[in-house]
Design a protein around this nucleic acid. Structure first.
Lengths: 104, 104
DNA sequence: CCGAGACATAAGCATGAACTTATGTGTTGC
DNA sequence: GCAACACATAAGTTCATGCTTATGTCTCGG
């Protein structure tokens, strides 16, 4: 898994929208299509890309496949981002407040 | 600036390499080409994409243009990532350790 | 000034990737 | 066991994008 692969997965607007939908709640592939005007194979292919990037994971349930956000993908981005902490302006720091929340 | 644009900028391996070089220290466009086998216009185009994404900013110095990492781009990713904190596993948390560092 | 250097822009090409239709695989309900 | 469904895979087409060569703009040194 090259680092740019995870960015490539999120670079496509359709795939980005799919990821955001899943972030709001896990869903099967058919449910994900609602609202988007893409074919079933297109959805299947997008989900494969997101899965290979580690952003999404699947759980088969009978003839349905339930998809959900994979925390490992987000953790990978977090680690990547952490490498550049030297460039974070002390003023902005959405992360700092974020971490404070987590500590509570 | 749509969110997927910043990911699109980092999705290309060459552009990703350029960003990493800049993260190690600001440089002008010619210096960035060293090591990479791309033409001068290609470099110029890549830098334009990174700049439009807010990941990089420029500072003209005579006939040289010095490029450096733009903290705003990283902050944008940080804010994006923060939206999904519900999915961060408490065990992993590269961010948690990261924030501890920053508080010192 | 004027040639050379640093960089940007234009235009054209060529590859990759996102889409389609068609088909395959596995599961459920009757 | 067979029809309908949920999803994956295959193959082909179209379009975006990353590359090139060519050229333009600005700056510096002589």
């Amino acid at each position: 898994m090259i680092e740019s692969d995870i960015f490539k997965a999120l670079a496509d607007p359709t795939r980005y929208a799919i990821f955001e939908k899943l972030a709001a709640g896990s869903m099967n592939a058919s449910a994900l299509r609602e609202g988007l005007t893409i074919s079933q194979p297109a959805m299947s292919q997008h989900l494969a890309v997101l899965r290979n990037a580690g952003l999404v994971r699947e759980e088969r349930q009978g003839r349905f496949v339930n998809y959900e956000v994979d925390p490992d993908g987000l953790a990978q981005i977090a680690r990547w981002l952490a490498k550049y902490r030297a460039y974070w302006p002390s003023r902005v720091d959405a992360l700092k407040t974020l971490l404070k929340e987590m500590d509570q």
